[in-house]
């Protein structure tokens, strides 16, 4: 994205008012019989998790080691402890994940004493179910194939994921309980109406639902919750020095899979990741945030969306996410 163009565009809209001028008084604490917005979101998510557990036969919780699924795990603890989780954790490993994140995934699953199932895109490639056009091609979209295979293998009728509606336009229109047909496809024009907190969890054999308990959370809510709960996160979420290449307004991390192109210069910058997906399509942002409060301050001040800053694959077309979802993506 051309920053200059965006700035020019921005300047044509009257400047947003400064809230600092509007609030000379401190923000009051919520009244005794009211929940703060984080408490309200938390309670809603716990309610959703319990509904899935109670109504679905064989659910699984998708855990990647990323911040959103880290929050999901804490919510699952709040929903089910002192009991065990009524579902295994499932990770669809592209084989192109950041090692810090994979290490964290295993550490966290062990710490919780919960069962972790890993299915890998590598295996799907070996079995000929995924054919790559080049060895370094992004495997992000191919997770759908492996996911659908895992769903068939275990007979999962519900997969709980950490997607949020503020991430992306297609997600803004997706239900919390999102029905998928036997090919895993999402049909945006034919979604079940979702009213009150009465979720329709019914599926036929072979079909499944994706459940997004933190649909109504924003990136900022997630960070505030991580701070409030003191949650551990993979180190690459914090600012660190890393070799990167500047490309199309994004910082591409230098890895074996993402080498510099002709004429590109490798530089070292202080960066952190806002999302941790497949490393062929996930970019860090420049940052000096060394703590969660630092990250919250940066998140609050940022002028670029999470996916806009960090995902190469969402920039290819306006409908990238929608198309992937129709193919069975999370």
């Amino acid at each position: 994205m051309e920053l200059a163009a965006a700035q020019e565009l921005n300047s044509r809209i009257p400047p947003a008012p400064d809230f600092a001028l509007k609030c000379p008084v401190p923000v009051e604490a919520p009244p005794a019989h009211g929940l703060s917005h984080l408490e309200a979101l938390e309670s809603e998510s716990i309610h959703i998790l319990r509904e899935v557990a109670a109504e679905c036969r064989t659910p699984a919780l998708l855990f990647s080691g990323g911040k959103d699924s880290i929050v999901l795990l804490r919510l699952a603890e709040k929903a089910f402890r002192p009991g065990k989780f009524p579902f295994p954790l499932l990770h669809i490993d592209t084989g192109h994940n950041f090692p810090e994140v994979i290490a964290f995934r295993d550490h966290r699953a062990q710490q919780l004493g919960e069962r972790l199932v890993v299915r890998s895109v590598e295996d799907s490639i070996r079995e000929g179910k995924v054919v790559l056009s080049s060895p370094t091609q992004s495997r992000n979209a191919f997770q759908s194939v492996t996911l659908l295979d895992a769903i068939a293998e275990f007979g999962f009728d519900a997969c709980i994921g950490g997607a949020r509606r503020d991430e992306e336009k297609a997600r803004a229109k997706e239900r919390i309980f999102s029905f998928r047909d036997e090919f895993g496809q999402w049909d945006p024009k034919n979604q079940r109406p979702e009213l009150w907190d009465l979720y329709n969890t019914r599926v036929r054999p072979g079909e499944n639902i994706r459940v997004f308990p933190i649909s109504n959370w924003t990136e900022l809510d997630v960070w505030q919750y991580i701070a409030r709960e003191g949650l551990e996160i993979p180190s690459i979420y914090y600012a660190h020095r890393r070799e990167v290449i500047r490309r199309n307004g994004q910082l591409v991390p230098l890895t074996d899979l993402t080498p510099p192109r002709a004429g590109e210069r490798v530089e070292t910058a202080s960066v952190r990741f806002r999302t941790v997906g497949d490393l062929t399509c996930t970019c860090p942002v420049e940052s000096t945030a060394a703590t969660v409060p630092d990250i919250i301050a940066e998140t609050a001040a940022t002028r670029i969306t999470e996916r806009g800053a960090t995902r190469m694959d969402d920039q290819t077309s306006e409908a990238s996410m929608e198309l992937r979802k129709k193919e069975g993506y999370f």
């Binding site: 600092a20 923000v27 919520p30 917005h37 309200a40 979101l41």
Partner: peptide, 15 residues
């Protein structure tokens, strides 16, 4: 005076 960061640390309710 309240700092601009205050926006971010809102603990207000959800509407």
């Amino acid at each position: 005076m309240c700092a601009p960061e205050r926006i971010e640390f809102s603990h207000g309710e959800l509407l």
